[in-house]
């Protein structure tokens, strides 16, 4: 606190700060609120009531239809499969790669790092045609396996850098102390380094999960049959030739938010410890 600042100025400052935070939160959450609102609005009231904050009568009808009468549960399950497997695969591979980048010096290390970085600079649209051709030859179009492979490949670069920074944050001394105490390198990794990197792995897992969960472009290009669609592609099926079924689409969207929320609720503890881990060093 700056000395000499009056009480009034401080109160005004706090009001300003909280006001700004509140404004941002409202700005960020309002579309989600609107999604929720539309999802519980009966079809009959959607266009007739004008713009209101909450419909005069709410209904679960849209949810019921989405769950019982559409393919959405299938899409949802496909998304869960693709996202979970991708997140786990990427976390394992990126942890191993990040550890190597952080701890070892090997020939071509810079080249590898630069190449990884380079893959992040291409617009995705540019690489879709070649990837479509390759996946076609391999018979991996229209399959969840194909999606998992592509998502994994595209997320590894960033996840590797993320994990490397977490490993960099763990003092080398700890590993050396473990090796003197009687660990081999792999034991030191298992007993000392990995327990300390769990928050980082949690963050990576969460990041990749959300990225895969909400991915649309590749899924749209590579998947055509209903049985293999992820929910992001599935949402588009609510757009008919002549009308958009907003109520059902929004109900499906709300359902799609649930796993992401659960995931972050579960990871939050680790993310917070991850961010403060450096404070207890030494």
């Amino acid at each position: 606190m700056i000395a000499g600042r009056s009480r009034k100025a401080r109160i005004l400052g706090s009001i300003g700060l909280y006001g700004a935070v509140a404004a941002y939160v409202i700005f960020a959450l309002f579309p989600l609120f609107w999604t929720l609102k539309i999802s519980v609005t009966p079809q009959s009231l959607l266009y007739s009531e004008g713009i209101t904050l909450w419909p005069s009568s709410a209904t679960w009808e849209n949810y019921k239809t989405v769950l019982q009468a559409t393919d959405f549960p299938r899409y949802f399950l496909n998304s869960v499969i693709v996202s979970v497997i991708t997140a786990v695969l990427v976390t394992i591979i990126a942890s191993a790669a990040g550890y190597a980048m952080s701890r070892f010096s090997f020939r071509g290390k810079t080249t590898v790092a630069v190449t990884l970085l380079l893959t992040q600079t291409f617009p995705l649209v540019m690489v879709i045609p070649p990837i479509y051709r390759i996946m076609g030859e391999l018979g991996l179009t229209n399959s969840l396996t194909g999606l998992i492979i592509i998502y994994t490949a595209f997320n590894i670069a960033f996840a590797t850098f993320l994990m490397q920074s977490f490993f960099d944050g763990i003092p080398k001394d700890l590993e050396e102390a473990a090796m003197i105490d009687g660990c081999s390198r792999s034991q030191a990794l298992r007993r000392v380094i990995i327990p300390l990197t769990l928050p980082g792995m949690g963050a990576t897992l969460g990041f990749v999960f959300t990225a895969a969960w909400s991915e649309l472009l590749f899924a749209l290009m590579l998947i055509s049959s209903d049985s293999q669609k992820t929910f992001a592609v599935g949402l588009l099926t609510f757009i008919g030739k002549f009308a958009v079924d907003w109520g059902q689409m929004m109900a499906a969207s709300v359902l799609a938010l649930i796993p992401a929320c659960l995931f972050f609720g579960f990871l939050q503890r680790y993310l917070v410890t991850g961010l403060t881990a450096g404070a207890v060093k030494g």
Binding site: D173, E176, A178, I180, L196, A277, K281, G282
Partner: peptide, 15 residues
């Protein structure tokens, strides 16, 4: 090597 080492940073296992 049957040695023990005390580090400047102490290198205690935080967990």
């Amino acid at each position: 090597r049957d040695i023990a080492m005390v580090f400047q940073s102490y290198a205690l296992y935080p967990h």
